[in-house]
Design a binder for these strands. Structure first.
Length: 353
DNA sequence: TTGGAATGGACAA
DNA sequence: TGTCCCTTCCAAT
């Protein structure tokens, strides 16, 4: 998936697209027909991420849309607030399309696959700045809403945009209390302002489970996935197989601080980049002797980038993730890979001790 | 046409 | 620990 930075980006996208609007909610695929029926015609008043969980808050149309209260984390919304909780899992993705006047947003956010519908953001009229359509007045009557493509579990249709969810691991309507219960099971989120490093440090320090596994445990820290796990441990110089309790607290705290920087940057730019400029491209350790970097046939990692010029190429974005067999960017030794708890773990046996 | 892979996680034993 | 689920894309048949 889509690690936590992606979900925060989604929350911002939904806020920009739909906040305060009454939405049409449907389930083209049919598997979420009941939930869609419950939410259809309600007003979106909150869009919040915690780790990899996305929560969209809906109130009945006509109820006071107390957006400010609803968006404060931890504040209990009115009893008539219902939340759409979604989790993308390994394959899930949101795909967006919008009217010419829609706020500029991402096209598709989610699983590492081709961005279906990317071009759909361009209005079918191909006239982006049609002066006949005053900004802010467009409705679904004035633009062409694309047909759902693939197995669309839920579709959210607003005044000037549509969002389709495919392949989620979770998609359900819950109450405010149930939302709290979900959040209670999650560890602190480095992207959230309320993320508490002390929780993370304490939890890691009292377990002999390896630090590599603990970083993937959403109850220890929310939002970290396989890429951030591998990369942050490399940057800290910590062996993923070390028991958490054997990693000095100061080092664990430094890992948290690094996650805050890396993940917030990821949420901002839509791509995970962990390499420092001096460690990218030619001139890195091992490059001279190794000649051209061998193509091992992997690493086709795609990111949900914002496509901005000057973006770091995906093959230079990581130190160790999906780089097994390639020379470490710092010391030149081949990067290692091993399956740990069902997931591939990548690390440098020399730089990480 | 098939099957492996992908940045996850819930659940049972 | 193993099994299953969610869906799509692309390399290999």
């Amino acid at each position: 998936m889509p690690e936590g930075h992606t979900v925060h980006r989604l929350a911002r996208t939904f806020d920009a697209l739909y906040s305060g609007q009454v939405l049409r909610v449907s389930s083209p695929q049919g598997r979420f027909a009941d939930g869609a029926g419950v939410l259809d015609g309600r007003r979106l008043v909150a869009s919040e991420a915690w780790g990899k969980q996305l929560f969209l808050g809906f109130v009945p149309d006509g109820a006071p849309a107390d957006v400010s209260d609803a968006q404060v984390p931890g504040v209990t919304c009115g009893s008539d607030t219902l939340w759409l909780r979604t989790h993308l899992g390994l394959y899930g993705a949101w795909t967006f399309a919008g009217a010419p006047d829609a706020p500029e947003v991402a096209h598709a956010i989610g699983a590492p696959r081709r961005r279906i519908g990317e071009r759909d953001l361009v209005p079918s009229s191909s006239d982006v700045s049609d002066p006949q359509v005053p900004r802010g007045t467009s409705t679904s009557d004035t633009w062409e809403v694309p047909e759902p493509r693939g197995q669309v579990r839920v579709r959210l249709l607003g005044a000037h945009a549509v969002a389709d969810l495919t392949g989620p691991t979770a998609c359900e309507v819950i109450t405010a209390d149930e939302k709290k219960a979900v959040e209670a099971r999650l560890g602190p989120d480095p992207i959230r302002d309320d993320g508490d490093p002390a929780d993370f440090v304490a939890r890691v320090g009292r377990s002999r489970v390896t630090i590599g596994q603990q970083l993937m445990d959403q109850a220890v820290v929310a939002g970290v996935g396989n890429i951030y796990r591998a990369e942050v441990l490399f940057r800290a110089g910590v062996d993923p197989l070390r028991p958490g309790r054997d990693v000095p607290a100061a080092t664990v705290r430094a890992i948290w601080d690094d996650l805050v920087v890396l993940m917030r940057d990821g949420a901002e730019h839509g791509a995970i980049v962990t390499t420092r400029p001096e460690d990218r491209g030619a001139g890195q350790a091992g490059a001279d002797d190794a000649g051209p970097v061998p193509d091992v046939g992997r690493g086709r990692t795609r990111q949900n980038t914002d496509g901005s010029p000057g973006a770091v190429p995906s093959d230079q974005a990581f130190y160790v993730y999906h780089r097994d067999g390639l020379p470490c960017r710092v010391c030149g030794t081949p990067v290692l890979v091993k399956e740990l708890a069902g997931r591939n773990l990548f690390w440098c046996g020399v730089c990480q001790t």
